[in-house]
Simulated assay, not measured.
Amino acid sequence: MKKIACLHAHHSNISYIEKALPFASCMHFVDPGLVHRVKTDPKFAAESAGAKVEKQLKWMEECSAAAILLTCTNYIALLPEAFTSDVPIIKIDEPYFRRICEIEEPQLIVFTNPETVEGTMKRLDEFAFYQNVKIKVHPVVIEGAFELVMTGNIEKYKQKVKHVLDELVKDHNTVVSVAQLSMVEAAEEVSDRIITPLQPLAEEVRKTIIRS
C-alpha cells in the first residue's frame, strides 16, 4: 500500500481523508498555526508565508511518500507558483474544480468558513479561465456554522449544515456543491446529487500513485 503525506490546517480533516482513501496509507501533518499567523500578521503573510509552506513540503518529501496531498485551500493559495517537487503534489480543490467546470448549469457552492470563500472562488475562476470554460457559480455561506465545528460541537454543526443544504436542494433549480471536507458527511446524507470535494479526489489520488 503506497503512502500519501497529507497536510491539513485542522485535525478534523484527517478522518475524512482516511475514509476517502482506503487504498492508501496516509501520514498526516497538521499545522493550524500558519493560517492563524497569516490572518493576524499581514507582514508575515506578504513576506514569509510562502516560504513556510515550501519548508513544510520539503520536510514531507523526505517521508518516502508516493504523493503529497494538500487539504487546506489557504495552504494551496500560499504555495508559490514556482515551487517544484520531486513528489507529486495533489491540491484537493483541483479535481473538485474540474468537476465543477464540467457543468454548464448555474451552481451554488456552499461554505461554512467565510474566510475560505475569497481564496477558493479566486482559484476557481483562475482554474476555469485556464480550462477555457465559463461557469455560473454563486457562493453561499452558512452563517454561524464554522464556530460549532471549531469548538467541537460536531453534531450541531452537521445538523445545521444538513438543514441548509436540504433547503437549497429543494428551493433552487440548480446544482449544489460543498467546498469543505467538514461538510461532506452532511451533504451525503441530504442528497447524492450534492457534489463534494471527496468524490473526484479518490480517483485523482489513485491515478497519481499508480504513475509514481
Rank of each mutant, 00 (worst) to 15 (best):
A5L: 01
L7R: 04
L7N: 05
H8S: 04
H8P: 02
S12Y: 01
L21M: 04
H28W: 00
H28M: 00
D31T: 03
V35E: 09
H36L: 11
H36F: 10
R37A: 13
V38W: 05
P42S: 01
A46P: 00
G50N: 09
A51N: 11
K55Q: 13
K55C: 07
Q56F: 03
Q56Y: 05
K58H: 12
K58D: 12
E61C: 10
E61W: 07
E62Y: 03
A65I: 07
A65S: 14
A67S: 08
I68Y: 00
I68W: 01
L70F: 02
C72K: 10
T73E: 12
N74G: 04
A77G: 13
L79W: 07
S85H: 03
S85W: 01
D86C: 05
I92M: 15
I92K: 08
D93N: 06
E94C: 01
P95R: 12
Y96F: 15
F97C: 07
C101F: 05
E102I: 02
E102M: 09
E104Y: 05
E105Q: 14
P106M: 08
L108A: 10
L108Y: 13
V110C: 11
T112E: 04
N113D: 04
E115A: 11
T116Y: 06
E118G: 06
G119M: 04
F127G: 01
Y130D: 00
Q131E: 15
K134N: 07
K134W: 05
I135M: 07
V140C: 13
V140Y: 14
V141W: 05
I142M: 02
E143K: 12
F146V: 11
E147W: 08
L148Y: 09
L148T: 06
Y157I: 03
Y157E: 06
K158T: 00
Q159W: 08
K160I: 01
K162L: 01
H163Y: 06
D166K: 14
E167N: 15
V169F: 15
H172S: 02
N173A: 12
V176K: 12
M183N: 11
V184Y: 09
A186W: 06
A187Q: 01
A187N: 01
A187I: 00
E189N: 14
D192W: 04
P197E: 09
P197G: 10
L198T: 05
Q199K: 15
L201P: 00
E204H: 15
E204C: 15
R206N: 03
K207F: 03
K207Q: 08
R211F: 09
